[in-house]
Amino acid sequence: MSRKTNFLLFTTSFIDGLTAGFLLSPQKGTENRAWLAKNAEKAGRWATLEHYLAKQKGTSRLDRLRKSIQRRIHQNIPNLYEATETIPLSKKM
């Protein structure tokens, strides 16, 4: 199965489980809705924070990769100015 299919199955199963839990819970509907509203707000803040942290981590990793590639290129490709500075360019030989 692909990652998209696995994610879709997981998400659908999770939502189905939540729905069944709310329908079969001994609490009243108003209590369930109040609890859900309170915890949905917390979950939203948590998701926002995790998104921000993941973005920062990804940016940091990408920057490290970019610097590593540049460093390896500079190690393997000579600086042409330094390589040719001892070559005499005048017509006197």
Rank of each mutant, 00 (worst) to 15 (best):
K67A: 09
R72S: 12
Y52L: 11
L62Y: 07
H51C: 07
F14A: 06
Q27I: 14
S25E: 05
A20G: 02
G29Y: 05
G17T: 03
G44C: 03
T19R: 06
T12E: 05
T86D: 12
T48G: 09
I69M: 03
R33T: 14
K92R: 13
E31T: 10
I73D: 00
D16V: 13
L9P: 01
W46A: 14
E85K: 15
F7W: 03
L53G: 00
E50W: 06
A40D: 05
Q70F: 04
L62T: 08
K57M: 07
L80V: 13
A34L: 15
A47W: 06
L24S: 13
M1Q: 03
A47N: 08
L18I: 09
Y81V: 07
S60W: 07
A43C: 06
P26W: 03
N32R: 10
S60E: 13
E41D: 14
S2V: 00
A34W: 05
K28P: 01
L9S: 08
G17N: 04
R72Q: 15
F22S: 01
G17P: 00
L23K: 12
R3N: 12
S13D: 10
K28H: 07
H51K: 14
A20N: 08
F14G: 00
K4C: 06
R72C: 12
Y52Q: 14
N32V: 13
E41G: 02
D16K: 10
R61G: 00
K4G: 04
P26K: 08
K55L: 04
L24H: 09
R33Q: 14
A34S: 14
E85Q: 15
L24Q: 12
K55A: 08
P88C: 11
S2Q: 02
L9Q: 12
K38A: 09
N79K: 02
E50H: 07
E41F: 09
I69N: 01
E41N: 13
R3S: 15
N39C: 01
A47Y: 11
L36W: 12
K55Y: 05
Q27D: 11
Q56G: 01
Q70H: 03
T84N: 05
T86Y: 07
A54G: 03
G29D: 10
Y81M: 07
S2I: 00
N79H: 06
N76M: 11
R64P: 00
R45G: 07
I87P: 00
P78K: 08
L80C: 03
G44K: 11
E50K: 15
G58D: 04
L36V: 06
N79A: 02
K67W: 01
A47H: 09
N79T: 01
G17D: 02
L9E: 13
R72V: 13
A34G: 04
L23R: 12
L9A: 11
G58W: 01
G29L: 15
R45P: 01
K92T: 15
M93N: 15
A40S: 13
I73P: 00
R64Y: 04
R61Y: 06
P78D: 09
A37N: 11
R64A: 08
